[in-house]
Computed example of a mutant assay.
Amino acid sequence: MESLLRYYVQGTGRLDETQVRRLLEQTLSGEPLMETFIDRYIAQGEQRGEQRGEQRGEQRGEAKILLRLIERKFGPPSETVRHRITAADSETLLEWSDRILEAQSLDEVLH
């Protein structure tokens, strides 16, 4: 079983050596290994999903604010501009949000 876990760790990188040791120690104390392994794997997936959801939520909020600022300063943005903004990552949105303060045109904001 230990060999199988080591193979999984090295192949996927989803668990580190310390986590595998803990799983094995729990098994020695009487807790079923596969249940522990599966529970831990599911918990990690849930945690990653929550983190991605939070990041995506922040990105949507940033895009919404930038679109509002653009509309107030330059008028309603085209669908192309809306799509570009909603598809941008948080770092890019922050950069564009900084530029809008001094930009004289929408082109200056997005380039």
Rank of each mutant, 00 (worst) to 15 (best):
E35Q: 14
L24A: 05
A88V: 11
G57L: 03
T27H: 13
L66C: 10
W96L: 08
R21C: 00
V109I: 10
G61Q: 07
T92G: 03
R52F: 07
Q104S: 14
E17W: 10
E50K: 14
T92A: 09
V109M: 04
I100F: 07
R99W: 06
E25M: 03
Q59I: 06
P77T: 06
A87Q: 14
Q59T: 05
I42E: 13
S105A: 13
V9Y: 01
G49V: 02
R56C: 05
Q26F: 00
E108P: 08
T18P: 00
D107E: 15
T27M: 01
E102K: 13
T36K: 06
G30I: 03
Q59A: 10
E102V: 12
L24S: 06
H83S: 12
S3W: 05
G30W: 10
I65W: 08
A63P: 03
T86F: 01
E35L: 05
T27V: 08
Q104N: 15
M1W: 03
L93I: 08
L66I: 05
W96D: 04
R99N: 14
R56E: 15
A87D: 13
Y8V: 12
S78Y: 07
W96V: 08
I100A: 10
S90W: 00
A63R: 11
E91W: 02
E50W: 05
D16N: 15
R72M: 13
Q10A: 14
R68F: 00
L4V: 02
G75A: 05
I65L: 15
D39T: 10
G61N: 12
E17S: 07
E91M: 03
A43L: 08
E46T: 08
Q55S: 06
I70G: 09
A88R: 02
S90H: 01
I38T: 13
V20D: 02
L106E: 13
R68T: 14
I85T: 03
R56Y: 02
E54P: 06
E35V: 11
D16W: 00
R82N: 11
A103H: 06
R21V: 09
Q10P: 01
E54D: 09
E58S: 04
E79Q: 12
G30F: 09
T86D: 00
E108N: 02
E46I: 08
I70L: 15
G49I: 11
E71N: 02
S29W: 02
L4F: 10
H111E: 15
Q10V: 10
R48T: 03
M34C: 02
L67T: 08
L15H: 10
L23Y: 09
D39V: 01
G11W: 04
R60G: 09
L28D: 07
R14A: 04
H111F: 04
E2F: 05
E102S: 14
Q55H: 05
L5K: 04
K64A: 15
E31C: 01
G45L: 14
R82M: 13
L4Q: 01
K73E: 13
Q44V: 09
R52N: 08
Q104K: 15
R82K: 15
G49N: 07
I85M: 01
T86I: 01
T18F: 06
I65P: 05
G75K: 05
Q104L: 11
Y8K: 02
